[in-house]
Design a protein around this nucleic acid. Structure first.
Length: 320
DNA sequence: GGGCCACTGCGTCATGGACT
DNA sequence: AGTCCATGACGCAGTGGCCC
C-alpha cells in the first residue's frame, strides 16, 4: 500500500504539530546519522527525487517521534476540525472565531468523510439509511404477512416481510384494523420456540405468544401504553422498543394526553438509544481509522528517513 | 471459588449545533 | 423559536484476568 496519496496535509500537520514538542521521545528508528541539525545546516538545499517521483527540496528534517502517536480521539478531532476550518479562512481569523471553532464538537462522520475525500484509502462512513433500515412508518408497504399465528385468546399475530408485527383482534376481518408494530433492528432468526407477551390494553394481564424464530416480544411499557419489546432469549437485551398503535376507545382525554407524553418520551428515548449506538459505532470506526493512519504515517516516516539517509550518503560520497 | 479491578457496552440525560 | 440530531458524561451491568 502506497501512502503518498493517502496523506492529507491537514492531518500530517496535525500529527506533526501535536508532537513537535515531544522532544524527549526519540524513536527507535532514528539513526544517529540523521542529525536534524546537521541536515538543516547544509549550505545548499539538495533536491531529492523520491521513489514515487516526487521532488523535494531538503532544507531540514524535523524528525517526529515515532513512539506511540495515538492520542485520544477528542484531541485529534478538535485539531482536525481546527485545521479543516482554518484552511479556507483568511489569516485574519480572530481569536473569537478560533475559540468557536475549537469548542465545536466533532462529528465523526464528517471528519472521517473529510479524511476519505483526501485519501481514497480511508473508508467513508455511510450516510444513514442502508436498506436494512426500512422506514418505520410505512408499515403498509411491507405488510405482506409471511407468517401468521393465532394466540390462545384468538388474536392473530402476523409477521410481515418488512419486519412488522400485526396484532389483530378475533373479530377483525383478516388483518384489517390490525395494530402494526415495526421492528427496527434486524432480528436474526434463531431456532427454537419463543414467547410473545403483550397486553393489548392497559390493565390487561400479559399474554404470552410463542413465536418462531428465537425472539421474544414482551410488553415494554409499564404505563398506559401498550408497548412491546423484541428480545432475543440469549442476550436478554431488547432489540428495540416497539410502540403499538393506541387501542383507542376507552381512554379519557387526560389519560390520552398522558399517554401522548409518554409515547413521545418513549419515541425520543428509542431514537436516542439508536443514535447513541450509532455514535459509538462511528467513534470506534473513527479511532480505528486514526490508528491505521498512524501506522501508515509511521511507516512513511521511516521510509523517508531511510531514503534521506541513503541520499545523504550519496551526496557525501560525491562531495569527497 | 470468591473478591477485586479494569475494560467494555449500553441506556439515559444534558447540551450545543444544524435545520426549518 | 422550536425541533432534531450527534455527542459527551454518567451510572450500571456483564465479563475476563489476576490474586488469594
Amino acid at each position: 500500500m502506497t501512502m503518498d496519496a493517502s496523506v492529507s496535509p491537514q492531518l500530517d500537520s496535525t500529527l506533526n504539530d501535536s508532537e513537535a514538542d515531544g522532544e524527549e521521545n526519540h524513536s527507535e528508528a532514528s539513526p544517529s546519522s540523521v542529525d536534524p541539525n546537521q541536515v538543516s545546516e547544509a549550505e545548499e538545499s539538495p533536491v531529492v527525487q523520491l521513489s514515487d517521483g516526487q521532488t523535494v527540496q531538503v532544507q531540514g528534517v524535523i524528525q517526529a517521534p515515532q513512539t506511540s502517536v495515538i492520542q485520544s480521539p477528542q484531541v485529534q478531532t478538535a485539531q482536525i476540525a481546527t485545521m479543516a476550518e482554518l484552511e479556507g479562512d483568511a489569516p485574519a481569523t480572530d481569536t473569537q472565531k478560533r475559540r468557536e471553532i475549537l469548542s465545536r464538537r466533532p462529528s465523526y462522520r464528517k471528519i472521517l468523510n473529510e479524511l476519505s475525500s483526501d485519501s481514497p484509502a480511508v473508508p467513508k462512513i455511510d450516510e444513514e439509511k442502508t436498506e436494512e433500515e426500512a422506514p418505520v412508518s410505512s408499515a403498509a408497504s411491507a405488510s405482506v404477512p409471511t407468517s401468521i399465528y393465532q394466540t390462545s385468546s384468538g388474536q392473530y399475530i402476523a409477521f410481515t416481510q418488512g419486519r412488522a408485527i400485526q396484532l389483530t383482534s378475533p373479530g377483525a376481518e383478516a388483518l384489517q384494523g390490525a395494530q402494526t408494530l415495526t421492528v427496527a433492528a434486524s432480528p436474526t432468526p434463531q431456532p427454537g420456540a419463543t414467547i410473545l407477551q403483550c397486553a393489548a390494553q392497559p390493565g390487561d394481564s400479559q399474554q404470552q405468544y410463542y413465536i418462531q424464530g428465537g425472539q421474544v416480544l414482551i410488553q415494554a411499557a409499564t404505563g398506559d401504553i401498550p408497548a412491546y419489546q423484541l428480545r432475543s432469549p440469549n442476550s436478554g437485551l431488547a432489540q428495540s422498543i416497539v410502540m403499538a398503535a393506541s387501542p383507542g376507545s376507552m381512554q379519557s382525554p387526560s389519560s390520552q394526553h398522558a399517554e401522548e407524553i409518554t409515547r413521545k418520551r418513549e419515541v425520543r428515548l428509542m431514537k436516542n438509544r439508536e443514535a447513541a449506538r450509532e455514535c459509538r459505532r462511528k467513534k470506534k470506526e473513527y479511532v480505528k481509522c486514526l490508528e491505521n493512519r498512524v501506522a501508515v504515517l509511521e511507516n512513511q516516516n521511516k521510509t523517508l528517513i531511510e531514503e534521506l539517509k541513503a541520499l545523504k550518503d550519496i551526496y557525501c560520497h560525491k562531495a569527497e
